[in-house]
Amino acid sequence: MTILDRFRIDGQVAVVTGAGRGIGAASALALAEAGAEVVISARTEDQLKETARQVEAVGRQAHLVVADLNEVDQVRGLADAAKAAFGRLDIVVNNVGGTMPRTYLDTSVGFLERAFHFNVSTAHALSTSAVPIMLENDGGSIVNIASVVGKVAGRGYLAYGTAKGALIHYTELAAEDLAPRVRMNAIAVGSIATSALDIVMSNDEMRTGIEQATPLRRLGVTDDIAAAVLYLASPAGSYLTGAVLDVHGGLQQPNMSLPIPDL
């Protein structure tokens, strides 16, 4: 066996949320290229069909589930969908999430709770549904897509950063509960060139400012995250659990300063 063989996941089955585009789509394709069949879910069927086309082009199968992944019952059902479609479940990528910036005094209790729900509760719903199915075989691996803003401070990110910080510590705590048969790790993602940053991509001055505020002087690309997902999910990462990989270009503070004045 060569070192590259350790990145193979032939015969395994993965569920990837938010897989219609961006990090989710790239992660699903990476897992497929490494040998997995994939269950992909998002709200938009046309986007899922495009991801499925790419998965099938590398010789793997994709099972599409159109769902509102902010609803815990729908996200929970993805584990059963994997077993029904492919007979097993080995890998989960909790990619769905996100929260818009807001000033401190505009961040209501409800807004904060909704951020936690979308970024943490949904991951918990899918993971707790997946683990019993994983245990029917050799165990499995869960990868949570967190954010650098869950680790560093910046104005406007209170709800998002609190939720992603909670997801990071959730990962560390759950890894203890799930060891040794199920591994759980997270990725602290930086600024990635996806549709979520369309406003940045279309503004040269803004993009240059973000790049200059990043130690590696560039935005990330989705394959930067997909490669980390594959590492954590595959035998190559088999001695990691409760880890948080910092895939953010070296950020020690947010590289997007929001124009929020002092109170």
Rank of each mutant, 00 (worst) to 15 (best):
Ala163Val: 03
Glu37Met: 02
Val221Asp: 14
Gln47His: 14
Ala67Glu: 05
Phe116Ile: 15
Ser129Ile: 07
Ile210Tyr: 00
Gly24Asn: 03
Ser27Ala: 15
Ala34Lys: 08
Val58Tyr: 07
Met206Gln: 08
Thr99Cys: 13
Leu89Gln: 11
Val66Gln: 14
Arg21Val: 08
Ala159Met: 00
Ser195Ile: 11
Gln74Pro: 04
Asp224Ile: 02
Leu112Cys: 00
Leu251Ala: 05
Val39Gln: 11
Ala52Asp: 07
Tyr231Phe: 15
Ala26Asn: 01
Ala14Glu: 11
Val66Ser: 12
Val152Thr: 09
Leu197Tyr: 09
Ser121Asn: 12
Met184Ala: 14
Ser41Asn: 08
Gly35Pro: 04
His124Cys: 05
Pro261Lys: 08
Val75Leu: 08
Ala196Asn: 13
Asn70Gly: 14
Gly59Pro: 07
Glu211His: 06
Thr122Ala: 09
Asn70Ile: 05
Gly165Asp: 02
Asp138Gln: 15
Ala32Cys: 01
Ile168Ser: 03
Gly97Asp: 10
Leu158Asp: 00
Glu172Arg: 14
Glu50Tyr: 02
Ala153Asn: 00
Val120Ile: 07
Ala32Ser: 10
Ile210Leu: 09
Thr222Cys: 11
Leu178Glu: 11
Gly190Ile: 08
Tyr231Pro: 14
Val200His: 03
Arg218Cys: 11
Leu197Ser: 05
Ser127Ala: 12
Ala227Trp: 11
Asp80Ile: 01
Met256Thr: 07
Lys49Leu: 12
Thr194Leu: 02
Arg181Ile: 06
Val15Glu: 08
Ala115Gly: 13
Asn185Ile: 02
Asn185Asp: 10
Asp68Gly: 06
